[in-house]
Amino acid sequence: MVKMGLTTTVVGSSVLAPKIASFSSRGPSPFNSTILKPDVAAPGVNILAAINDGYEFRSGTSMSCPHVAGIAALLRSLHPNWSPAAIKSALVTTASITDEYGLPITAEGAPRKLADPFDYGGGHVSPNKAIDPGLIYDIDAADYFNWVNGSISDLNLPSISIPSLKTIVTVSRTVTNVGPVNSTYIATIQSPPGVKMDVTPSILIFNNTVTKHSFKITFSTIRRVQGDYTFGSLIWSDYKHLVKIPIAVRTVIQDFYADVSL
């Protein structure tokens, strides 16, 4: 028995959204796995777009990009002194990893699974929250120069990816306060499974004279295995702002990427 009918569109509270589409690009980055990709997720399925002299519903990264670019333009208009890195930081650290019901975002594919930072980076963009991120991870020209001539792990990105953790790795980050002048932020750690994380210092105090703080994150293996990526996060909170960065770590014994089981 085959039943056929007209196509229908389901909208409203009965639809679980957002989800990561099966065609969406996934991490880790094939060019440099020390930089976590993607950065964020944005609407990209069945988006009404201007095509030539008309309109069509289109899907793909080319639909997500205008959403993010538009949000970035609005943030720049509100914060004209923010750098592109600051705007990116605001988008990543305020992104959501749950849907409107508070359930974890899922990733479509074979099979469907709970999404992780290799699916959505920091999460699904939240424009209203990005207006007031509390703290930003900023980068200037000197930082990029030091990155070219130093360690990419310490580039001040709002994310951390460690593709080869043998024993202990320490990375540095710096945050700038763009919220209330007198603020105190406390670190909350969600360590990737199989990895121990320590943050020093774990409390950051800002005032009129102190607007930036640097800190170190030390990763150490709990069990020595040739593993795969596991995921965690670091959140700075002043009980008003939640400044979250995604973390991906892969523990290794030998310096080869592919694992072979006999």
Rank of each mutant, 00 (worst) to 15 (best):
I245Q: 03
A21Y: 08
I160R: 00
K196P: 04
T184V: 09
P66F: 14
T8P: 06
A17T: 03
I245T: 00
P38F: 04
I105L: 00
S25D: 11
Q226N: 13
I139V: 08
F215T: 02
P66G: 08
I162Y: 02
R58L: 15
A130W: 08
S25K: 12
K212T: 14
V125M: 00
A49K: 13
N52L: 14
K3L: 13
Q226E: 07
L48S: 05
G179R: 06
P104Q: 03
F219S: 00
D255N: 10
D132V: 08
L157C: 05
L135T: 02
V260K: 05
I47T: 14
W82K: 13
K166Q: 14
T61P: 01
V11A: 01
L78K: 09
L114S: 06
S172V: 06
L135I: 04
F256V: 07
N32Q: 15
L204I: 04
L155Y: 08
V10N: 13
A107F: 15
P18L: 08
S214A: 08
S83D: 07
T176V: 04
K244Q: 09
I139T: 01
N46M: 11
M197V: 12
I35Q: 10
S25N: 15
D228G: 05
T98G: 01
I186Y: 03
D53A: 14
N81A: 11
I217W: 02
V243Q: 01
I253P: 02
S183Q: 05
D116W: 00
I51T: 15
I160Q: 03
V252Y: 01
P38K: 10
S261V: 09
L16A: 10
K166R: 14
M4L: 14
K212R: 05
L242W: 10
M4H: 09
V225N: 12
A187W: 02
V125P: 06
S29H: 13
A50Y: 08
W236T: 12
T61F: 09
V40E: 03
L135W: 03
T218I: 01
L16P: 15
S33C: 08
H79R: 15
V148A: 02
V148I: 10
K37I: 13
V195C: 09
T211I: 04
S261K: 12
P28G: 10
S96K: 12
A110D: 15
P84E: 10
T94C: 09
D53M: 11
D143S: 04
T251F: 02
I87W: 07
Y144C: 03
F219V: 03
G232T: 02
A110Y: 15
T94V: 11
V225C: 01
N207I: 09
T221P: 02
G179C: 00
T209V: 07
S159G: 10
S89L: 00
Y239E: 04
D132N: 12
S126A: 10
I189Q: 04
V225E: 14
P18S: 06
S14H: 05
I245E: 01
P158K: 06
N207Y: 07
N207A: 04
D154Y: 00
P80M: 10
P111V: 12
T174S: 05
T61W: 07
S14V: 15
G150P: 09
G44R: 01
P66I: 15
I245K: 00
S33W: 10
S24M: 12
N81M: 12
V2F: 04
T209F: 13
T34E: 13
T211E: 09
D132M: 10
T94F: 01
F256R: 07
D116E: 04
